[in-house]
Amino acid sequence: MMKFNHPYHLVTLSPWPLMMSLSLMIMMSSLLMLFNNLNLIMFFFSLMLMLMNMYQWWRDIVRESTIQGFHTSIVIKGLQNGMILFILSEIMFFVSFFWCYFHMYLSPSIDIGMIWYPMNLIVFNPYNIPLLNTLILLSSGITITYCHYSIMESNFKKSFFSLFMTVLLGLIFSYFQYLEYNESFFSINDSVYGSIFFMLTGFHGFHVIVGTIFNLVMLIRFMKKHMSLYHFFGFEASSWYWHFVDLVWLFLYLFIYWLIY
């Protein structure tokens, strides 16, 4: 085996980036076909292809980390910086939507009667499902923080249970948001408020689903004993992402639901 006099990890050739990009392209094409022709077969084929590529790519990364030991402290530092930059890019993504929202909130156009929110819209009561979802998401932030401290104490049972509760609370949040959408008296086509509301809450809901899957993968890795007191960056990245999701929801609840009610 070739030895190197540096602590960095030089990744080997991998087919998964190319395969993943092709599967994403096929999935986007199949989504267009699904919206126009209701072609479910192509959509499910592209979905299975993407999931297969994701699984094998992550499998190789886990193997590099837990079995081959390529993730040294300097490599993990680089991964941490990369995750921080990714979350910053996600923050700017939501900033753009909030910018649009506050522009219309502070200076509503004449097309919507120069009032905010537009007339003849029945908005959500912030003290019903939105408040319940806020409590659920804040509770999940507590459980994932408790999981972090349990890992630092090398307590497997507490860390596993608290992460399981985080995944469960994330699923409950997504279910209640689905119920909220079913009860909506307006749609994404109902003026600029409907567009901004469903773009913000919809993208946040998508991030909750991604974060729940992220935490679920970490839960499976917990079961396989991949984590230790000195080696748990995968969980650390998922917890950072989940706290970001929590923070965005607080801004959503305060400004989209509560402020205008």
Rank of each mutant, 00 (worst) to 15 (best):
F198L: 00
N189Y: 11
C147F: 04
V192G: 00
Y193F: 15
L200K: 00
S150A: 14
N215H: 03
R221T: 10
S154F: 11
T145Q: 09
S195P: 13
G205Y: 00
Y146D: 07
Q177K: 14
G205F: 00
N155S: 13
N182G: 13
I196V: 13
D190N: 02
I144C: 07
F214R: 03
Y181D: 03
S174W: 08
E153Q: 12
S150H: 05
T212I: 04
S162K: 10
K157Q: 08
Y178Q: 10
N182S: 15
S140K: 05
F173Q: 00
T201E: 02
Y178E: 13
F161H: 09
L171A: 11
F164A: 14
M223F: 15
R221K: 15
L168V: 07
L219A: 11
M199S: 10
L168H: 04
F198R: 00
V192M: 05
S191R: 11
S191L: 06
G205N: 02
K224W: 13
F156H: 05
F173P: 04
V210L: 13
F203Y: 12
F161W: 07
F198G: 00
V210I: 15
G205C: 02
L200F: 00
G202M: 11
K157V: 11
E180R: 11
S191Y: 06
T143S: 06
V192P: 04
H204E: 01
M199K: 07
E153H: 15
E153S: 07
L200P: 08
I151T: 09
L169P: 02
L163K: 06
F160A: 07
K224T: 14
N182I: 09
S162E: 09
F197K: 01
E180I: 12
K157F: 06
L171M: 13
S195Q: 13
N189A: 11
V210D: 10
I136K: 09
H148I: 11
F203G: 04
F222L: 06
T201C: 01
M165Q: 08
S174K: 06
Q177E: 08
H148S: 15
S139H: 04
H204P: 03
Q177S: 09
I188Q: 12
H204T: 01
L216P: 13
S139A: 07
L168R: 05
Y149E: 15
L137P: 01
S150L: 05
N155I: 10
F185N: 05
V167G: 02
S139K: 10
G141R: 05
S159P: 06
C147T: 14
